[in-house]
């Protein structure tokens, strides 16, 4: 299919546009984009899970863990130099999330549908409860974090925000491009097969549980990195990152974007943050209703997500 082959060039074009264009954006817009990119990474992981036929109502677990891991390391283990680095923190967050994903994956890979959703929700709520109990980590108030360097290079004050913005743009590009390649690999192509009919996959000689497990770990790593980025952008973390409504929001965004393309989650995340911010501004008393109606409209009229607009146009062209 020609449309799909254009994904990688389009992604690298988008990378250049965002990198250069971002420089001219006001600070608040850059921050909003970082937030959207960070959350977009989490939703990207969800896209992979959804393609495998699984929806997690507990990605907040890894999102929160990614945010806390990096910061706790600098706080408790005292690696102030390494752990005030804008690149090291999200990556470390991703690694820690991936390790937990590996461990929990042994269990969760056996679950499907609503039970998978609920068990992952339970795990994220347990983390939430543990963090609320930990006064050393600030309990529900959380604590502030900051970064001073990027890949070891000290950042001057005026460059801090753009540096983080550029980093998140780059990480999103790498993640989407790699995931795009992965989805085209043998293992990646097994994901929809698992969703459609597990028995057939097993008869073909592949292990369903292995496919689910691998994809689950990838989603966890993405959520961990995303959490790390958001933590740096906000400058503050607290246990709400693991609360079930946070996870619910990721599923919301995933549905908004659809699973048609690796770019969909990122675009949906951008749109979602923007709608939410506009709703806060223009409907401070009814912003939830605006979000609810948006979600209903998307489900009713664009069941395959916003991406289907692009697909339809590509097909018509």
């Amino acid at each position: 299919m020609t449309a799909a082959d254009r994904t990688l060039p389009a992604l690298s074009l988008a990378l250049q546009v965002f990198l250069i264009g971002g420089w001219f954006l006001p600070d608040w817009a850059q921050s909003l984009l970082i937030l959207a990119f960070g959350k977009g990474l989490v939703v990207l992981g969800l896209l992979l899970l959804i393609r495998t036929g699984l929806v997690s109502f507990g990605q907040g677990l890894y999102y929160c863990l990614g945010a806390y891991a990096a910061v706790s390391a600098s706080k408790i283990l005292a690696f102030p130099d390494l752990m005030s680095d804008a690149l090291a923190m999200p990556l470390f967050g991703g690694v820690v999330a991936g390790v937990l994903g590996l461990v929990l994956g042994f269990l969760l890979a056996r679950y499907r549908a609503i039970f998978f959703a609920m068990l992952s929700l339970a795990f994220s709520m347990i983390l939430y409860g543990l963090l609320i109990k930990m006064s050393v980590l600030g309990s529900s108030d959380g604590f502030n974090i900051d970064y001073r360097t990027l890949a070891g290079i000290k950042l001057p004050d005026g460059m801090k925000l753009y540096a983080l913005y550029a980093l998140s743009t780059l990480l999103v590009f790498i993640a989407t491009a790699c995931l795009h390649r992965y989805l085209r690999s043998h293992l990646g192509r097994l994901a929809p097969a698992v969703r459609d009919n597990e028995l057939r996959v097993e008869y073909m000689g592949s292990s369903v549980r292995y496919v689910v497990h691998v994809n689950y770990i990838i989603a966890a790593v993405l959520a961990g990195v995303g959490g790390g980025l958001v933590a740096l952008s906000i400058g503050h973390i607290d246990p709400d990152l693991a609360y079930w409504t946070t996870s619910g929001e990721f599923v919301f965004v995933a549905v908004l974007g659809g699973t048609g393309n690796v770019a969909a989650p990122v675009l949906a995340s951008l749109l979602f943050e923007w709608i939410k911010s506009a709703a806060y501004q223009y409907a401070p008393y009814t912003w939830q209703m605006v979000l609810g109606i948006t979600l209903l409209l998307v489900i009713m009229f664009l069941p395959a997500g916003l991406w289907s607009i692009f697909q339809r146009r590509a097909r018509e062209a």
Binding site: D27, W28, S31, L32, L35, G142, V230, I234, G235, H236, D238, D240, L241, T246, E273, K276, S277, Y280, Q281
Partner: peptide, 11 residues
């Protein structure tokens, strides 16, 4: 939540 509030403050 704080994530939202930090961005709203910026806005």
């Amino acid at each position: 939540g704080t994530t939202k509030q930090v961005n709203e403050y910026r806005n």
